[in-house]
């Protein structure tokens, strides 16, 4: 059954590409006719998954950057499920279209690395954003926040609510997701170091399934009756763990934090089943991604500090690991949740 199903997804995705590809082309034809003669660089971004608010907000930021820069054509296409094979097909299609810069948020960094090599061999500038493929030929990684920033932000928010001690568990998503795993490593080390009276009792993986994340959080609370904290490590499990606490009637007894998008977390932040959502300005991340794509497409080097836009006036670049850093992580609570429209 499984290969058939995967085939189904691939078919659906290919059909989707064919359809949206056509409309996109028409859009840009009209746009490009305005400033003929000037070279436009095609910057393509392949998210892990299309249609979720997180990547749609990145897309909005990317479009905004393309409009501001003037010489960039922003292309955006992702799989309809967070599936490495479906994502690879989209990357291949962009290689065939000979875009100028190809930026990927890989579902599986290891299987993406050879594809990025293939793109480079075809003369395409490659980069990663949101999630890195460290062992690949990518020219730059646009990092939303350091693993330390996220991991410590999550731990500090949670442990402050838990009173600095107690048992907590993590509901993560994809088991091979590089960024989630790097944050979890920081959470483990940082908890041990800063909160010696706190303990991570379990880490489970729910995939992108909200209902499954909620059920797993419920099971964790049952398995550990003295559990006082839960972390939802991605945008589907962050509301999931909060919902589980709410359903179990344990608001105020079990605290949750998570990597959640503001609008999805709003009801939970308001009823206190979630203490805080740790995130970053996703639209700015999209903006920075498009800007970085334009830079590498034009073979322009990065400075140690880059003035990207009025909101991103000092973006740090480290040569050693070829990484652009958006900035510090952002804690979203019931106080500031209304500032974000995604």
């Amino acid at each position: 059954m499984r290969p058939r199903f995967t085939a189904a997804v691939v078919m659906a995705t290919t059909a989707a590409i064919a359809l949206t590809g056509c409309t996109k082309k028409n859009d840009t034809d009209t746009a490009a006719s305005g400033d003929a003669g000037k070279k436009t660089y095609k910057v393509a971004f392949v998210p892990k998954l299309q249609g979720v608010p997180y990547f749609e907000a990145m897309n909005a930021g990317g479009k905004e950057a393309a409009a501001a820069l003037g010489n960039v054509e922003w292309l955006y296409q992702g799989p309809t499920q967070a599936d490495a094979a479906a994502q690879a097909d989209i990357v291949r299609s962009y290689i065939q279209q000979k875009v100028d810069a190809l930026i990927v948020a890989p579902n599986d960094p290891d299987s993406m690395a050879p594809l990025l090599q293939q793109a480079k061999d075809a003369g395409i500038h490659v980069a990663t954003a949101d999630t890195d493929a460290p062992s690949s030929v990518r020219e730059v990684f646009v990092n939303q926040a350091t693993a330390e920033g996220i991991g410590q932000g999550l731990t500090d928010s949670l442990l402050t609510a838990m009173g600095g001690k107690g048992k907590y568990a993590i509901v993560s998503c994809g088991q091979t997701a590089e960024n989630l795993n790097s944050w979890i490593e920081v959470q483990k080390a940082y908890t041990k170091e800063k909160y010696p009276e706190a303990e991570i009792v379990d880490i489970v993986y729910a995939g992108e399934d909200q209902a499954k994340a909620t059920q797993m959080a419920t099971d964790l609370m049952n398995a550990h009756p003295d559990l006082t904290g839960l972390v939802g490590e991605c945008t589907s499990s962050a509301p999931g763990v909060a919902q589980a606490v709410k359903d179990a009637g344990k608001i105020g007894k079990v605290f949750t934090v998570g990597l959640g998008t503001p609008q999805a977390m709003k009801p939970y932040l308001q009823d206190k089943s979630s203490t805080a959502a740790i995130l970053w300005d996703v639209e700015n991340l999209g903006y920075l991604t498009a800007w970085a794509g334009a830079q590498i497409a034009q073979n322009k080097p990065f400075a140690a500090t880059n003035n990207v836009s009025s909101e991103l006036s000092a973006v740090a670049y480290t040569e050693a690991n070829k990484m652009l850093l958006l900035g510090p992580a952002l804690a979203i609570t019931d106080k500031n949740v209304d500032q974000f429209n995604y």
Partner: peptide, 22 residues
């Protein structure tokens, strides 16, 4: 399914359910 999820519904809903049922 809606009742068991959160106050947000994302497009992964239903994904793979045919296999679970079969």
């Amino acid at each position: 399914v809606i009742a068991q999820g959160t106050s947000t519904l994302d497009q992964s809903v239903g994904s793979g359910k045919e296999l679970a049922v079969i």
